[in-house]
Simulated scan of single mutants.
Amino acid sequence: MIQPTCLMSRPRKNSRAAFTLVELLTVIAIIGILATILIPVVGHVRQQGKLASSTSRLRNLGQAAILHTADHQGEWPRSTHAYDRKSPQWWLALSPYLWNEPITSASNPAFARYHEQMLRDPLDVVEQNDGTHANRFSYGFNVYLQLGEHDDYEGKPTRWNKNFNVPFPESTVIFATNKLETSDHFMAHYWVSRTDAEHDLDARNGEQAGIAYCDGHVEWVAPSETYDPSNGINHWNPSLAGKR
């Protein structure tokens, strides 16, 4: 009688097939395409977030200055161009309206945090090798609002150091994004051409600078849209700001 042969069991094939090289390359290509789409989108969203924060801080400055006038018989805060011991620079004078405590000196331990969170523009890029900014102040104050009897300017002796003396608050600059290294103000009464405004204002949003006006609203515009005497534009001199 013929005995049945003993059949050895064969290993079962793996039901999960491995990726082929073509499939792996396809997955890598898809990931690369998604990355090229998403990275610019993420960058744009991040930039828009900084722009919104920048606009908010600039608006807060303008509105704090308006609140300051309400508490000081209409007087605008002063920059280093016109401050005295009784009237500190605007970045100290506005601290009660921007911060949780008044800060009367840059030596105050809280000043660094106040400066970074309230006075430093998120769009003001780091430019130094040590990770600091080229300019001390992200924003500058319009000196026209504090000119005195010893200054020389168009419109003298008219003065606009009180808010109710500004005839066109909706089109008169109070703060703007600042490119100057150590100054907290703009000596706009010395400007003679549009290139002066383009030199001093920092266009941080593409080719646009951030501008806060005396009525509290904020716009992003080209520097020449605030000052171009060849075209009759001067939003710094309060008496000329309403002219077109």
Rank of each mutant, 00 (worst) to 15 (best):
P88D: 07
E127N: 02
T195D: 14
N129K: 06
S171P: 00
V126Q: 07
A176V: 07
I103N: 02
S95G: 08
L145M: 05
A65V: 05
T177C: 04
A212D: 01
Q146E: 15
E198Q: 14
V22H: 09
T20I: 05
L21C: 07
G74Q: 10
R16T: 09
F168S: 13
L51Q: 08
W191G: 10
H133Q: 14
A70L: 15
Y83A: 14
Y190H: 13
N135K: 12
D124F: 04
D184G: 03
S183E: 13
D151G: 10
S107T: 12
Y139H: 06
L34H: 01
I2C: 06
I103Q: 08
S138Q: 04
I39Y: 14
R59P: 00
V143R: 10
E127Y: 01
L34I: 11
Y227L: 04
D124A: 10
N135G: 13
Y139P: 04
R159I: 08
Y213T: 06
E170K: 11
P4Y: 02
R78S: 12
W99D: 13
L180A: 15
F168Y: 14
V143Q: 04
F19N: 11
I39L: 15
F168I: 02
S87V: 13
E23D: 11
I174C: 14
V42Y: 11
G131K: 00
L98G: 06
K179D: 06
T132Q: 12
L98M: 13
A241R: 02
W160V: 00
K13A: 12
